[in-house]
Amino acid sequence: MAVTTDRAALNEWIACGWPEKVVPGGKYRTVLLGQEIEVRRTGVSSFEVFECDGHGELSRSLPVQAKYCCIFTTLGEPIRPLPKIPEFDEADRRITGCGSVGVHTSPFRIIENFLDMAHFSFVHTDILGAPERTEVLAYKTEHRKDVDEIWAIDCQFYQPAASKASKGGQMTHYAYRVMSPFSVMLYKNVFDDPTRNDAICLFVQPIDETECLAYMPLAIVDRESALTSIIDFQQTIFAQDRVILENQRPALLPLDPTIELPTRADASSIAFRRWLKAKNFQFGVYEKKAA
């Protein structure tokens, strides 16, 4: 496996684990963009990350940050800081990661699926969507240039069971936020409370172009459910997405809009693909081979 040379990918903070993955004093190896790394938990909340050379020996030390129930590092020179997600500092929220889930596809397929509402009725049937209420109403997308983030706002979809706390169906209001090519989150209104939003993140660790680990930290408003049940709900949803993600062809994301035909409901996907194209991404994207 070769390390990517794509600076656009190298110069991002990328998740490479979560704090409780090993006990203090423990360590593990993983792969980031084709580069083997070693993550060491030196204390309860202190970590070190090293690059490994071709012989498995540790070479250079890499920057590390532990935040949002994840450990982040970078192989390059980050062009942006980690995003600010203030919901993770609110005392009354339930905050947890869900471990990592392996997915064989491009990291961008995973991000794009997270932004998509049109699949709710078919993939998350009777939970996030109902088979008889499939319509995606118009929503807005915008590129926030000051932070270089893609947002989709004024999104709404009818959901039979929007979260673990739900006791019935509701029109759920969503806002989506692409914080980097490898990280995305959503805000969705809490069941029966339009004034508060659950914050659900998805951080993707690309092992290589078509193999990833997905992390789903949550900061949600739910006083009643056991944490185990909250994680179980989130994993149930993601495992429904995963079988789709692993069976899209090609696995790499096509940026040319003539290869995969979008419709209005795909506005966020269109914005995301344009944004990747403008960054001249090579890693994880599909290039139509010349005949």
Binding site: M117, H119, F122, V123, E135, V136, I244, T263, A265
Partner: peptide, 19 residues
């Protein structure tokens, strides 16, 4: 199975449930 788009015999898309 992803978005429920329906294709008729002959291949034409005849239904996009999102719209």
């Amino acid at each position: 199975i992803y978005h429920g788009w329906g294709y008729e015999l002959g291949g034409h898309c005849a239904s996009i449930p999102a719209h």
